[in-house]
């Protein structure tokens, strides 16, 4: 093979691979807005899409204090064990999504808008972007072998 033909073969291989990827669809890593939270403790199991909570949208309207001090949302994705029963009792999202401060709870699909099967996670967090786990220094009490 002349080097020109070789180069062409290489080129067609690359094009072929690209065409294949385009056709089959390679899963794209999520590019969601920083601090979007997917909450999926129960939704999937009940046949609903996971809930997506956008921090950016809410922090334009409320300080963190409203949710994380007054309404008692703990700083932990999935950690508040939110259910619809609690929401219609006026807790968590239901403190506002009640037809008074914000639109009411019958707009299921506005909150339940996540891709089915997406696990609970916090989008864009530094911890998740680390290539290797963060270095964990020895604590004074775990020197024993």
């Amino acid at each position: 093979m002349s080097s020109k033909i070789k180069r062409n073969v290489l080129k067609s291989m690359i094009i072929g691979v690209l065409a294949y990827m385009g056709a089959v669809g390679v899963p794209q890593p999520a590019q969601a807005e920083y601090a979007d939270v997917v909450i999926n403790n129960y939704a999937d199991a009940a046949g609903m899409r996971p809930a997506v909570f956008p921090h950016w949208f809410h922090r334009i309207r409320f300080r963190c204090k409203v949710c994380h001090a007054d309404l008692g949302f703990a700083f932990k994705a999935g950690g508040n064990k939110i259910t619809m029963a609690k929401i219609i009792d006026g807790k968590f999202c239901g403190a506002c999504h009640n037809g008074e401060i914000s639109w009411s709870v019958e707009n299921c699909a506005m909150c339940h808008s996540g891709n089915p099967g997406t696990p609970t996670h916090f989008h864009g967090s530094t911890v998740q972007r680390l290539i290797a786990p963060a270095y964990k220094p020895l604590q004074a009490n775990d020197t024993k072998k």
Binding site: Q28, P29, A30, Q31, A32, E33, D36, V38, R49, V52, P54, W56, F57, I60, N107, A109, M110, H112, S113, G114, N115, P116, T118, H123
Partner: peptide, 29 residues
């Protein structure tokens, strides 16, 4: 690759869900 994508293209929202298209585009806000 890109920043502040609209919800329907961000990889966590389901574009098949009609309400996804009613959500606000971050860049607009």
């Amino acid at each position: 690759k890109s920043r502040n994508l609209p919800p329907a293209e961000d990889g966590i929202h389901d574009p098949e869900n009609e309400a996804t298209h009613s959500l606000q585009h971050p860049l607009e806000a």
